[in-house]
């Protein structure tokens, strides 16, 4: 248990440092009618930060929070937005991606929102960002201890397809009764020889809680394990926040004789040649399909490296 608290405290500076920034810029430029810095009032941001701290102290455990109605619809990332709004300060640098790309409509929309309500610097570069809000992907470029990754979560409850009643699943998590999940995994192997989850693949965090990592492809799961950055998960509609503190064990559920594995890429990126990153399939016409990196910033970096001959 000491282990976890130490990590929570170590992660806390990330949270508090950003808060200082927020307090300083209370009189920052904002559009009329006068909105708070990052839209939410200070009381709400405090409530969110408290939920975050609790989540960091209990890795993988879903912490209820008083989610507010935001100017973007439920399902569009209000949870991630509230988490980011709780953390962001004037000296932060924000990157927002959706499906790995900075240019998808939803990422653009969210980035605009923060730009308007905070005036904070935004970027498309993973390396330059201090906060990265993401939907459905983990960036390919490894993150550092100075960064926070905020995931948008549609469904925080990993057991929801097996038991829709949250009043029940709450108890199951509390008692560590994961029989529902284990029989499902058994069935998958018995029927298909594989576990039938390709995204939002359930994981066990800190050898304790079973957690839903959000609909990232299972390809991305290994990145969560012992990640140096703080990982925060926000579900606005379901009103839950959870966290993986830096350097925490995250194990994808599997059997020892049917271990979790990621199939190697069968293709290379058309633009940069990478065989290591997650690729989007693009259908050009009836005959041709090509593949490109889903992570646009990574792809750009690869192309530039090739250009300058840098390894």
């Amino acid at each position: 248990m000491c282990d976890v608290t130490d990590r929570a405290i170590a992660a806390a500076p990330n949270v508090f440092r950003l808060h200082e920034g927020a307090a300083l810029s209370a009189e920052h430029r904002s559009p009329t009618p006068a909105y708070s810095f990052a839209y939410l009032d200070e009381g709400t941001k405090r409530m969110i930060r408290r939920a975050i701290l609790k989540a960091v102290a209990i890795p993988g455990c879903q912490v209820p929070f008083g989610s507010r109605e935001m100017p973007l619809a439920y399902g569009w990332g209000t949870g991630g937005i509230q988490v980011t709004a709780g953390l962001i300060g004037s000296d932060d640098c924000l990157k927002v991606i959706d499906q790995g790309s900075d240019d998808t409509t939803n990422a653009v929309n969210i980035r605009e929102f923060f730009s308007r309500t905070t005036g904070v610097q935004t970027t498309e570069s993973t390396r330059k960002a201090s906060i990265i809000q993401t939907r459905h992907r983990i960036p390919e470029i490894p993150l550092t201890e100075h960064q926070v990754l905020v995931y948008q979560v549609p469904q925080p409850e990993p057991l929801y397809k097996l038991e829709p009643r949250r009043s029940e699943t709450q108890k199951l998590h509390g008692y560590r009764e994961y029989g529902l999940m284990s029989v499902k995994l058994y069935e998958d192997i018995a029927r298909w020889g594989h576990i039938d989850e390709s995204y939002d693949y359930p994981v066990c965090v800190n050898d304790h809680y079973v957690m839903a990592p959000s609909p990232i492809p299972k390809f991305d799961n290994p990145k969560m394990h012992q990640m140096p950055a703080l990982q925060l998960f926000g579900a606005g509609r379901e009103k839950r926040i959870y966290a993986i503190p830096p350097y925490t064990n995250v194990e994808s559920l599997a059997f020892s004789d049917h271990p979790f594995s990621v199939s190697p890429n069968e293709h290379a990126c058309e633009l940069c040649g990478s065989t290591e990153s997650f690729l989007d399939e693009v259908i050009l016409d009836k005959q041709r399909t090509l593949w490109t990196c889903s992570d646009t910033d990574y792809c750009k970096e690869q192309r530039e490296a090739k250009h300058t001959g840098v390894e």
Partner: peptide
């Protein structure tokens, strides 16, 4: 779920 799953739980 299958008989096998029931027993294994």
């Amino acid at each position: 779920v299958s008989a096998g799953a029931n027993i294994s739980e």
